[in-house]
Structures are given as structure tokens and as C-alpha cells.
Nucleic acid binder design. Structure first.
Lengths: 245, 245
DNA sequence: CGCCCTCTTGATCTCCTTCAATGACAGTGG
DNA sequence: CCACTGTCATTGAAGGAGATCAAGAGGGCG
């Protein structure tokens, strides 16, 4: 049985132990994807969702002009491919950044789960809203902030999400994204990502050694960040209690 | 009882008549908001969600640098404020663009609904995923497209959504958004929105007369649009059938 | 050892911003 | 009825953030 970190849920919604155990056991069988290989391609028929058990991956949309925009950087513990659940053919391409362990959750399995554990519906609902909020903040940054601010926002986002799964130590973490990938996330060219990072480095806001990044002054970075940190409500008033359904 | 057009649901997910009737009756009491008044402000405590029974409204995020990014333009029939359901204080400000009729749905009411009609959970889940997809497309356009392409994307999006509620006639519809508002949606200045629109006009792609917009050549516009139209699956395999739960 | 990928830096170009001014129009009050 | 005010659309001119083009340097790996 795969050990699924459950970052999407156990940190963010009140789950019973039984529900958590259920989710942990979700993945059918883990598959290995090599660095840079494609897990699921855009426009392919949608048959399942994916649990990223280990590694980094991206969700990207290809534009007709040949450009590519990464809409989400996935890390260990993330669910992937769920936006396409409402479509016949996938909207985004999932690509392994590092070697990845991925488990699949089929729709038939998911349906049974929703029926047998009705609280799963609202829990999933909550989880997508969180993703939607993240996208809203990205839209805000993309529309109205400078390259510098956007880069800082991304670094802080990764910092915070990695911290939740224990992959940050005093502001230091591994970030296996090339500057070209960062550009595709931030809506910038690799060249400009480079210049912006070097500038942050010269200012002493960050430091780098290979893939390793150090946020030297998280407080100051947060003050520069274009969006405030959002604190998710663990137990919203509309969420049915475990006994209630 | 407000007659709620239900565009979010009846077009997009398979609902029983009973479920549809339920949603139509949701709104507690309709309130009127004057043009430009604020329906719910950022950082205010979150206590309910809103049903826009009539009118146009925006959902916007204010950045520390004083800028404002509109993340969603709401039209008659939309649900508003749901992203903040997972927060204590609202992430976005809801503002009436035209005079608006708005009904409120309290969280306690919503909780009862989720419990008494367990299929509502998955249905809401589906609805948010659709919103999330829209945001993904906006991120793609904001990151990797020109002003011209983004404007076209927005016009087509409004066209298609207004068509669903019968507010389009041969490519013609009312768009009560000032160029400044359009700029805040597209991540542009009002000045550049103006120039871009005039250019589209000169090319014969659109025409305008006051607030009225005409998409003269929808086919050609779709070919220019940076993102493909997404066709939502009416009845995905993971959705529990009406009898099943 | 040599190749390819990635990072880095410089020079030039361009799309969009910023600043500024004008006109059209609606509302408002004398 | 007309001046007065504010909002919105429009256009010109100049400036800047980031793109594009180009070239070199370092490093992992077959």
C-alpha cells in the first residue's frame, strides 16, 4: 500500500481517522515515471485522477502559438489531473520533472468512495476551492505584478507547501526546476528569470547552490509578495460533521 | 421565491428535477445592490455565499501595491463568493457593476442541504472544477498571450456564457464594463484596452455602439483565441447517479 | 573526451505603460 | 435653459519592463 502523505487533506480539513486511512489506501498501484516523461497528455481521454506519491511534476496547457504555460507545480502528496474530471479530453498535460511515483485512482473506484463515504463529496469540494484560490492569486500576480514579485510569490508558495511535507529546513529546500520551467510558470522567459533571480541573490533575499534554494529572509520576502498568505479554515461551518452523514 | 437561472448547474451536470427545484429555492431573500456598491469586501468575515439573480458583478483581489485584479466577471445566474468558503476572511471583493439582485445562502442552510441531498457534494465539486478550468485558461492567456488575444478570449467567454442565459442575439450582447474594468480583468491599462479594441474594430472582428458589442466573425475570433473551447462532460463516470445516494 | 543541457551576460527591440490633453455625454443645480 | 462637474472614450508622445537574439561558460554523462 502506498504511503500517501495526504497533504491536500489532513492539513486542511477535519477528517476522521477512517477517512484518512481510506484516502491513504486509494492508489491502485504505483507506477514509476522517468524524469521528463509525460504522465498524461493534453486532449487524451480522461479516465482517472493521479496521486503523486513521490517527486515533482507539472500541469501545463499548450497554446496554439506553440507556447506552454505551467498552471501548477505539483510536489509529493498532490492530487493531479482533477480539473479534467469534468471533461472528456484532458485540458492539461502532466509531466514528470523528477523521477515520479504515481498512483492512479479510477473513476469507478472514486464513485464507490463518494457513495460509501458521503462526506468525501464536501471534502473534495473544499480541496478544489483551495486550488482555485491559489489560481486566483496567480492570476492577480500575473496581471498586476512585476517579475520580481511573481518570482517571490512562487518561491514562498513552494516554501510553504514543502514545509508541510517536511522538505524545508531553515528556509532551505530543493527546487528541481530549470529556469526555463520557472519561466513557463511565471509567464516570463528563462533569460529574464535568470536576471531576476540574480538580482534577488545580490540583494541577499535568497541564495542558491545548484538546485538548492535558501530563502534567507522569509519575513522580508513575505512583505514583498504580491498576495497575502491565506489561512485555510480547518473546519468551515458548512461542512457536515463526521457523524452527520 | 427568486427565479434563479441555474446556469452553473442545469447546463453542466445531470440533475434531477427535485435537485434543480431545491437550488432554485436556495436564496433566502433577494437584496438590491446599486451600481458600483460593494456586496462583500475583502478580509471581511465569511458567513455565506451569494447567488447573483440579476446583473453584472466582479470578484476582485486588491494587491498591496494598490492595484486591483478582477479574477471573475459574474453575470446573472452565477454563484459568488464560494472560493472564500474555505477561509475565515474573504479573499475577494464582490462589487456590483450594474444594479444587482443578490440572494444570500447561509452556511447553516448549506450544511443542511449537503446532508439531506448528498449528491449536492459531488455536484458542487464539479461546479468548482469548471471554475478552476476557467482560471487555468486565464492564467495561460495572461502568461503567454498578447493583449489582443486576451481581449478576444474574454469577449468569447462572455459571449458563450451570456448565450446560455439567452442574452445574445446573433453575436450581439450588452457589456456594461468600462475599459478600465476590462483592463483590470485582462491585466492591462485602460488606455491599451482602448487601442486594442479599436484595432479589432478596424479589422472588422467586432463592432460597438455604446455598451453593445457585436462579435461580427465568431469563427475567426475563435481561431485567434489563445485557448480552445472546453466542452464540459454532462455526466462524468465518477458522479453517483441520482438513485445511488 | 566530447556533447548537450543549463546558466549567465550583453545588446537591441517592442509591446505595453505612463503621462497628458481633448471630446462626448449624463447628471445637477442655478 | 445653460453652465458646471464627473465619468468615460480616445489619441499622441515618451519611457520602461521584459522579450529576443546571440554568445560564452560550466557541468553532468555517455
Amino acid at each position: 500500500m502506498p504511503t500517501y502523505p495526504l497533504t491536500r487533506f489532513n492539513e486542511q480539513a477535519s477528517m476522521t481517522d477512517a477517512e484518512a486511512a481510506l484516502l491513504r489506501g486509494l492508489g491502485e498501484s504505483a507506477v514509476l515515471y522517468r524524469q521528463r516523461s509525460i504522465i498524461r497528455r493534453e486532449r487524451q481521454p480522461v479516465e482517472a485522477i493521479y496521486l503523486l506519491l513521490e517527486g515533482w511534476a507539472t500541469s501545463a496547457i499548450r497554446l496554439p502559438n506553440g507556447q506552454r504555460q505551467i498552471v501548477k507545480v505539483h510536489i509529493t502528496g498532490d492530487m493531479m489531473g482533477t480539473p479534467s474530471m469534468v471533461l472528456d479530453t484532458a485540458a492539461d498535460t502532466l509531466t514528470a520533472v523528477t523521477d515520479c511515483r504515481v498512483a492512479t485512482l479510477s473513476f469507478s473506484h472514486l464513485r464507490e468512495l463518494l457513495i460509501s463515504h458521503p462526506r468525501m463529496g464536501p471534502l473534495f469540494f473544499m480541496s478544489v476551492q483551495i486550488e482555485r484560490l491559489a489560481l486566483m492569486d496567480i492570476v492577480a500576480a500575473l496581471g498586476k505584478s512585476s517579475a520580481r514579485e511573481r518570482l517571490i510569490q512562487l518561491l514562498l508558495d513552494l516554501h510553504d507547501r514543502l514545509a508541510k511535507i517536511g522538505a524545508v529546513e531553515e528556509g532551505r529546500f530543493d527546487m528541481p526546476l530549470t529556469q526555463e520551467l520557472l519561466g513557463d510558470v511565471l509567464g516570463l522567459t528563462a533569460v529574464h528569470v535568470n536576471r531576476t533571480m540574480r538580482m534577488l541573490e545580490r540583494e541577499g533575499l535568497i541564495a542558491r547552490q545548484g538546485q538548492r534554494v535558501v530563502l534567507s529572509d522569509v519575513e522580508r520576502l513575505r512583505r514583498i509578495s504580491p498576495v497575502p498568505p491565506r489561512k485555510v479554515r480547518f473546519d468551515p461551518a458548512w461542512m457536515p460533521a463526521p457523524g452527520e452523514m
